[in-house]
Amino acid sequence: MSRAAAFYRPNRPLLVYAVLYLAFLYAPVALLPVFSFNDSIYAAFPLQGFTTQWYADMFADEAMHGALWNSVKVGAVAAVFATILGVFGAKAITRFRIRGVKPVLGVIMLPLVIPPVIMGVALLVLLSQSGVQLSLITVTIGHILICVPFSIVTLMASFEGFDKSMEEAAADLGDNSWWAFWRVTFPMVFPGILASLLLCFTISFDEFIMAFFLAGTEQTLPIFIYGQLRFPQRLPGVLALGAMILTATFVIVFLAQWLRGRSPGVAQSGSE
């Protein structure tokens, strides 16, 4: 009894910790947009005045356009393939009670904890051994690899709430398993699929290390940014670009989380 009471008492130290943690996490991030509008090539206080010059410069940069377009292509392709693989994986894990599914799940989730440097080097060795030219394609393959676990985790939530009798009803009404998937399963888990696509896209879009190892001569946006940092006068432009990427990423991740929370099949399939 007294223990339970102690447990529910407001925990002051924990609250302080949480506030500090959030400040530590987001203060640097919040500074980025601030300096991106600062009329000085040095990212330092005191602020000099308001300007949108850095944004204009960045928009005019041809190299940036190329890198951005590369990143969008890689991100889109990686997101689509990782999500397709994720659908199969999540469906297999949640629907068929396969024996030994736990260890298999562990192996699939491994890329979540393997350092990207190791993954990048390993892939680089493998690809150069088999004589594959480094290109955007190799980057995409690397990104698919790191995206699949995220996709599976995202989709598992959708498939777990999915009522098996829905597919049986579709089969009973004359659909073979492909039609049943297309007409019933897919629309019902669609929010999860969209969430997975968005999540995978942002992961790929922001990823640096794998791209650094596997990109060859073409560069993605993070690599472009890294290259810019060698020139001090380019720093404000990078800050402007960073601020924009940050905003876009925030919006997309929020959207993905929101979509994940609402799968139409989950709440209503049961009888009252």
């Binding site: 009798s165 009803a169 659909d175 073979n176 019933v184 709440a267 399939s269 009888s271």
Partner: peptide, 20 residues
Amino acid sequence: QPPHLRPTNMVFQNYAIFPH
């Protein structure tokens, strides 16, 4: 014969109405 080719139809215990 798989279910989709049988001349039978079923009313499921939970009705299985497609929510979408």
